[in-house]
Design a protein around this nucleic acid. Sequence first.
DNA 1: CTTAGAACGTTGCATGCGCATCTACATAGC
DNA 2: GCTATGTAGATGCGCATGCAACGTTCTAAG
Lengths: 162, 162
Amino acid sequence: MTVTASESRDAIGPGEISSEELVVWRMLQRAQVRITRLLETDLLVEHDLALASYDVLTQLSEAPERRLRMNDLAERVLLSRSGLTRLIDRLQRDGLVQREACASDARGLFAVLTDAGALRLAEATPTYLRGIRTRFLDVLDADELRQCAAMLTKLFPDAAER
Amino acid sequence: MTVTASESRDAIGPGEISSEELVVWRMLQRAQVRITRLLETDLLVEHDLALASYDVLTQLSEAPERRLRMNDLAERVLLSRSGLTRLIDRLQRDGLVQREACASDARGLFAVLTDAGALRLAEATPTYLRGIRTRFLDVLDADELRQCAAMLTKLFPDAAER
DNA sequence: CTTAGAACGTTGCATGCGCATCTACATAGC
DNA sequence: GCTATGTAGATGCGCATGCAACGTTCTAAG
């Protein structure tokens, strides 16, 4: 195939990707990983709480009766079922969560937020929010935030606000 | 402090965060994790290559003489030094990379991309690009992509295109 | 009722990662 | 030169996670 001058450099066919586009993706990756790590170390240092644990506590606190089925919870925090089993083990050992049987399905279990868990969450939340604000929200203006939300809604099929 | 009706619901003080803002952050987290996992399984299934390995090969391929100091490389792929040591162990075992001494600093090592590594990277790249395109780029229009790039530049202090 | 298949949660196992530590080398101060 | 401090990379260890397999229970088909 002969290549004309205009095609030779950043030739973009129908399925091609320009280097600018690629850079956007890479920056997104890096920014996200970095912010997440900062957030996690904040929580770890100030409250000895991993980000995944914080997520679990948050999900439970927002759920009706502060309880969620293991399976449901696993999906919400983006963990495999086995991963969630171990995480709930740890949280239960620390008294932040407890397991309860499900009346309507003997196979199922609820993870239930304890009062201690709710307290711990309340203590950690200012740290979490401050981290997000300083590392993410403060950097963007209202317009950008709206654009960001719009893009995410497109990217995110089941956006149901989880 | 007395709370008026207008403040009672989503009262936003100077350091507060509205629930909309919080949702944006959560969606970003979720979208990023999900896309990354899809990308990783694509590479794993089609080329038996982990995303971290792909990143290393890419960084090396773009570096002068296809080589980078371990430390430098670790920073670029967002891995700890020890993490990179093990990853390079594996890649070297598979013949995709090799270690070479550094003439100017006897402590240092270069990770060098081998021909086999370059070939493997070339094979895997279409999968990677296709994944990014279908899961990310195709969903956004040119305007949104520009907005996204602008935001990331603000979020990303050392944006130097890495 | 019985049986086949699916779904829920747990467990064994392997893997990949970070932290703390170690050794070898480099650099600065004397 | 010699010592003290710092840096590059490797190693021991612990931890969190996913996959595959398992037991238990639910559901559908006959």
